[in-house]
Amino acid sequence: MSYQGLYRIILILSFLCLWVSTRISEDWENGLGLVLILSIGVIHGANDVRIHLNKSERSTKRILSFILKYIVVVLLGTVGFFLSPQITLGLFILVSGYHFGQEHFEKYQLPASWKNNLFVAAYGLLILLMLFKINSSQSLNVINEIVSMKITEQQLYYALLATCVILVATGAYQLRGIPLKTIAKELLYLAVIFIIFNTSSLLWGFAIYFVLWHSIPSMYTQITFLYGDSNQSHVWSYIKYSSLYWIASLIFLGVLYFFLQERTQFLLTIIVAFLGGITFPHVFVMDKMIKKA
């Protein structure tokens, strides 16, 4: 399957998710969103060991060493949300923005430079800030609870505006060799994502983007990197290798939801801290993979 075919499927699934949101309550949206994020979303980082270490490097010692370092970074990132929430949340948003943008534009193989880094980071930040601004009442409650300070909707607006300016300025340079038809498709994708965020709750909107628009294309890229192509047998091999992480994430989801189902705000805070912890080492691994490809 080509990237073009993959994004056709993503568009179809996106509108299916929008239809589902008209048929279920917000509580069900949040529950389904958590299932998607902590299963498919988490699984897309389950092969980081294999991606980071070449086949010749996969000795037991190197694997255990990498896993130990990975766990330490995850724990430090998670704990950081409670020890220094302002700094950790800021880093998480910046790193996540860079990661989302880098993964999305990797298929175009744009020339590496600081301008490209700024462009992909601005794209990813646009996605996140657009989600936060559209769902400002929910997002600001979560953000202000984490950082213990007052961030306003106006500040979100100015941050979004500045990000748009940077994106347009850097994009005019970085995308100068990309056909106008392709750029039009990218604008269409942004419009669809805007519609998703505008018609969904904060958690459901993020889940649709994170799973469909980020995790699935990322898994496609990873499978191609690991196996050379993305045929059915390779997809199943990737899933089987990730099955332990799948089960662990579902157990984590079940326990978390059981104890915190009446405390939605605190539940979202814990989810953000957990995702932040696993994001930091994953971004490092994927950055290395993209530069190898």
Rank of each mutant, 00 (worst) to 15 (best):
Y189H: 11
V147H: 01
M289E: 00
L13W: 10
A172K: 15
W204D: 01
F280R: 01
S14Q: 09
I193R: 01
N144R: 10
L34G: 11
T22Y: 13
G171H: 13
G77W: 01
I67Y: 13
K240N: 12
K107Q: 13
Q4F: 15
H214N: 05
E57H: 06
L64M: 15
A46S: 10
S84D: 09
I183L: 14
M219N: 04
T221S: 14
L94T: 05
H104G: 06
I223A: 10
S136W: 07
T163P: 12
S25C: 04
S215Q: 02
T152P: 07
L13G: 08
S139H: 01
I134Y: 03
P217M: 03
Y241K: 09
G171V: 11
G90H: 06
I10S: 05
I10A: 04
L83C: 13
Q174D: 05
T279F: 03
L256D: 01
N144K: 08
L161D: 09
M1Y: 06
G97A: 01
P217N: 00
L167P: 07
Y220N: 07
W213I: 04
R50Q: 09
I216A: 03
D229K: 14
H214F: 08
V35I: 09
W19A: 14
I193S: 00
N116E: 12
L180C: 03
S14R: 08
I37L: 08
T279L: 12
N135D: 03
S96R: 03
W213L: 03
